[in-house]
Nucleic acid binder design. Sequence first.
DNA 1: CACTTGACCTGTCCGC
DNA 2: TGCGGACAGGTCAAGT
Length: 319
Amino acid sequence: MPELPEVETIRRGLGRIIVGRTIGGTENYSSPKSFPNAAADIEHFLLGATVTDVRRRAKVLLIDLSSEYTLVVHLKMTGQIVWIADTSRKASFRGRGADGELISPSRGGVEPLLRYGGGHPSDSFIHALPDNTTRQRLDFTDGSHLYFNDLRKFGWMKLYPSIEVPNINFMQRVGPEPLEDTFTAEQFRERFLRRKKTNIKAALLDQTVIAGVGNIYADESLWMSKIHPQTLVGDISDSKFDTLYSNVRAVMNLSIEKGGSTDKNYVDAEGKKGSYLQFANVFRREGQTCPRHPDALIEKIRVAGRGTHVCPVCQPMPQ
DNA sequence: CACTTGACCTGTCCGC
DNA sequence: TGCGGACAGGTCAAGT
């Protein structure tokens, strides 16, 4: 689920909320894979530690602790990290999501707190946590909680000594951050040209080429750039690469501005949905007209084993 | 080595 | 309404 903009949105929210809070307890909900550290490590390096920073690399969240350990979190497809205030106060919560949609207290709920999501967007709701997707709970000493929820159990969180984080296999292999000011169009093109014989969609999804692009932003940036997803990397001109470079960055920056994309499961650190999909041009819009070509209908095809959305007119199939 | 496919999980949706 | 199969935003291991 979460791609770079979603993880970045969570990072910003968590950074505002949990830095300075101290972890007093934790509980696993029958899913050892979701938090596989040994009990002794949890005891020594998690409990009693204070959060000092929340960082992001690619789609991975890095929660730094005063114990000089870092809680590394990968949400994979359906993971959520949701902070809930002191439940003993049973405060009702009412506010607006990033898309302006009213968040109302759950019907008759005893603890109408912040979790939002699951199910269809039109019947979004808030209910108390934990729920049946909760895999781990962290308890702060001020009475607030951080829930790690993950329907499909692909995601995980794991404690590493902070100094070891750069040596994790994924961190060694992952490509540069595409939104960094120092990342240039030339570097972008050079990285992709190491994958000349694969199609551009597979290359965009390959985290060792550049970091952070997933299925949504791959389809959106290719549509903006008028490139068919099955085009071989080696067949793309330098000027098209410049266009794609700009559009990958534009699409992900816009999504961060909109609080990310919520299709089914994604919520930010406060349980709110993102609104980027309202601005999407092709993703999940098969059968609708292309914004550039009122006569053309967006198609859904399969590329690199993934559902892929294209306009057959502005993204003509390579021969 | 470059590239593709299947596996990891659970839930939902679609066609018969 | 029930049932089987395909599919879902990510990554790795194992295969060609």
